[in-house]
Design a protein around this nucleic acid. Sequence first.
DNA 1: GTTTCAGTCATACGTATGTTTTAATCATAC
DNA 2: GTATGATTAAAACATACGTATGACTGAAAC
Lengths: 221, 221
Amino acid sequence: MTETVDTVRDTKERILDAAESLFARHGFAAASLRQITADAGVNLAAVNYHFQSKEELFVAVIKRKIEPINARRLALLDGLESQLPDVVPSLEQVIRVFFRPVFEAQLLGVELGNFPKLLGRFYSEPGERVARVLGDAFGVVLERFGRAFRRALPGLTGKDLAWGAHFMIGSMAHYLAAGEILKFMSRGQVDALDTEEAYERLVAFAAAGLEAMASAREKHA
Amino acid sequence: MTETVDTVRDTKERILDAAESLFARHGFAAASLRQITADAGVNLAAVNYHFQSKEELFVAVIKRKIEPINARRLALLDGLESQLPDVVPSLEQVIRVFFRPVFEAQLLGVELGNFPKLLGRFYSEPGERVARVLGDAFGVVLERFGRAFRRALPGLTGKDLAWGAHFMIGSMAHYLAAGEILKFMSRGQVDALDTEEAYERLVAFAAAGLEAMASAREKHA
DNA sequence: GTTTCAGTCATACGTATGTTTTAATCATAC
DNA sequence: GTATGATTAAAACATACGTATGACTGAAAC
């Protein structure tokens, strides 16, 4: 009984694993189903059987990674807010909670695989594909964290927050997708794989930047 | 005489224009030479004649856009530093000079086309392709601006700078490549096409973030 | 013990890809 | 006015793509 199910799961997950790696390394269009199924050691037709299309496979790959992260984000934020109900979480605390799940797996020594590059690349994949996942997966997260950010920084308007969050996510995405450039830019001084440092750096950069959004608004108009 | 030359320029540039637009909209792999040449109104073989391959065409498209921007960056930095030789340019001034050429064309009312998305996407295109252009085009810029940043923020170490610059570029790239997400995230409050505001926001975010890199270092180890 | 059914398999379809080849075209130099 | 060298045009090249089909498998259901 479990045998049949496990075989299925194995095939589906082997496809997902191989697809994740290839999508991350080559992008959606350049990763062929033939190479994906070859790497996964399954038949070519298995993709269209288990998922309906290459497109759906891509969505499944993204969702498998993003959904646990967003769930963890919400859980951490819940913990932060319910722990001391009267204390408003600081900006840095909220930012840490937002970024931590992305780094967490690797910090815990778990294999993170090609997820970073995949997630980074995901943001620059053509529209339609991304929009669907984005709406589904980030709706609640955006809402909850938006409130948390504005409680931490009462001066922040909706526009301030949108700009700040956008740059914040951009910094993260670029680090995830193009971390190797860091080694090039720093002439080897910085190792992008030092996740602990990357996390601290990102938090510091984002916190300062977000805080600066309020004053920038006054400057502009 | 000029006729021949202009015809050449026309064909090559029509290809470059069409390629730029399609690479920006669909990425490298998904933009086909047939669609590029059809949009450009030239023959399919013209691409392999004028450029040797699709790959070289991509490099040419990127270089055509990046080189003037980097030249302008250096010129602006020269102006800043030679204007008052005894005054060290401030962090914000240097950052403005670094970002300005990217926004300038649009600020001046010149058609910027699909360049923003292309440049943003460029950062997440697979490695080999990008690395060549990156090394060629950004070597001098990196060196000169590195010095300028460290003069503006004497506390900054090489590592601080590398992290800060990386996040800075990430914020810009993400804005350029995925500006539409901004409208989604802000529930329509923010129009990413307001270049003037984007520029001010980006400068403010990056300046604050970069400044924060020095203190973050102490925190980490 | 046969039916059922999810899963896998090899294979083929039609289309699209980047590139190459062969001929024609054209302005210019002699 | 014709030879020349550079562009373009049209067609074909081999290969790769995503998807669909129909046969086969093996175990559970009745």
